[in-house]
C-alpha cells in the first residue's frame, strides 16, 4: 500500500486515536486495516502483488520484442545464444522457438492472474450469495441448495472439462466456464456455515423483529459480516485457481498457442530442460512461486487483521 498510509500509522498515537474517535467512527474495517498494516509480511506481499499487476499490465512497454516475433538469428542455437541478455533485448532469454521469453512471461502472467482473479470473483459473488441464501432461509431451501452443491462437487470436473474441450474445442472461454463452474462450490459451503452462526446473532433477530425484509437482511446484515471470512478465503482461492489452470495447461489442455500462461510456460520450459535452457523453466516458475507465496502471506495477514480473536 502507499507510503502515505504508512507514515500516518507511524504518527498515530493514543491521543491521536481519541481525536479520531471524536471526529467520526472507527469502523471495524479501519481497525482491520491498521492491524493489517502492522503485519510486515502481508504488506510486503501486497507490494509484490501490486508490482506483479503492473508487470502484467505494462510489461509490454518494456519488452524489446513482441511475444509472437521469432528471433531468427537465435532460432538454430537457442541453447548457446538464447540465454538471458540485456544486449539483445531478450531479458529472460528466448524459448525453444526463439520467441522472447520476457514478452511471453508478461502474456502468461496476464492470463494466469486473470484466471485466478476471475475464479475468486465468481466464487465471492456466486458462492457468497448462494451460501448466504441457503443458510439464512434454512430448512428445506437449505437442504435442496446444498445437495445441489454436493452433486456438483461429486462430478469429476477434470473429466467434464476435457469433455467440454473435446466438444467445443480448446479455447480460453471454455477454461473460464470450467473454472466458473467449480470455484464457487467451496465458498458456498463456507458462506452457509458462517451464515448459520450469524443468523443466531441478536442483531439479525433484531432486524427481523423490526420487520426488515429477508433480502435486505441478507445483503445488509449477513453478507457484510461474512466478508471477513470470504475475503480471506478468496485470497487463498486465487492461488488454487492459478494452480488449477496451470495443471490443465501442463496437461496440454489449457490455453492454446500462441496464448500462454504460467502453467504452459512451465510445461514448455520443463520439456526443454535436458538441452540446458534452464531459464525457460526458471523465469515462469519464479513468477508462479512468488505469486503463490505472496497470496498465502496476504491471506494470512488478512485473516489476522479481520479476525483478531484467533490470535
Amino acid at each position: 500500500m502507499s507510503p502515505f498510509i504508512f507514515g500516518r500509522r507511524a504518527i498515530r498515537s493514543l491521543s491521536a486515536a481519541s481525536v479520531e474517535d471524536a471526529a467520526g467512527g472507527r469502523s471495524l474495517w479501519r481497525d482491520a486495516r491498521n492491524r493489517f498494516l502492522r503485519n510486515r509480511a502481508a504488506v510486503a506481499s501486497l507490494a509484490v502483488l501490486v508490482l506483479l499487476l503492473v508487470f502484467a499490465l505494462f510489461g509490454d512497454l518494456f519488452a524489446a520484442w513482441s511475444n509472437e516475433e521469432i528471433d531468427w538469428a537465435l532460432l538454430g542455437n537457442v541453447a548457446e545464444e538464447g540465454a538471458p541478455s540485456l544486449a539483445n533485448g531478450h531479458y529472460f532469454g528466448v524459448d525453444e522457438l526463439g520467441r522472447d521469453l520476457f514478452a511471453r512471461t508478461v502474456q502468461g502472467t496476464r492470463i494466469s492472474l486473470m484466471v485466478g482473479i476471475l475464479g475468486a470473483l465468481i466464487s465471492m459473488v456466486v458462492g457468497t450469495l448462494y451460501g448466504a441464501v441457503a443458510g439464512y432461509f434454512g430448512g428445506r431451501v437449505d437442504s435442496v441448495m446444498m445437495r445441489i452443491v454436493d452433486v456438483m462437487m461429486a462430478i469429476p470436473y477434470m473429466f467434464v472439462l476435457i469433455l467440454f474441450m473435446v466438444v467445443f474445442g480448446r479455447s480460453i472461454l471454455i477454461l473460464f466456464v470450467g473454472i466458473g463452474l467449480i470455484s464457487w462450490l467451496d465458498m458456498a459451503r463456507i458462506a452457509r456455515g458462517q451464515t448459520l452462526s450469524i443468523k443466531k446473532r441478536e442483531y439479525v433477530e433484531a432486524a427481523v423483529a423490526i420487520g426488515v425484509r429477508p433480502a435486505r437482511i441478507i445483503l445488509r446484515h449477513v453478507i457484510p459480516n461474512l466478508l471477513g471470512v470470504i475475503v480471506v478465503y478468496a485470497t487463498l482461492l486465487v492461488p488454487s485457481m492459478i494452480i488449477y489452470e496451470s495443471f490443465i495447461s501442463f496437461l496440454g489442455l489449457g490455453v492454446q498457442e500462441p496464448d500462454t500462461s504460467w502453467g504452459a510456460l512451465i510445461n514448455d520450459g520443463a520439456s526443454q530442460m535436458q538441452y540446458g535452457t534452464l531459464w525457460q523453466l526458471l523465469f515462469p516458475l519464479f513468477f508462479f512461486v512468488v505469486t503463490l507465496f505472496a497470496l498465502f502471506f496476504l491471506g494470512d495477514g488478512l485473516r489476522d487483521a479481520l479476525d483478531p480473536k484467533d490470535r
Binding site: R201, A206, R220, N225
Partner: peptide
C-alpha cells in the same frame, strides 16, 4: 411489527457491528 418492538439482552450483540 411496528407496534411491537423488542430490546435485547446483549447490548453489543444486538447491534450490527458494521453499521
Amino acid at each position: 411489527r411496528r407496534d411491537i418492538q423488542m430490546i435485547f439482552q446483549n447490548p453489543l450483540g444486538a447491534l450490527d457491528p458494521r453499521m
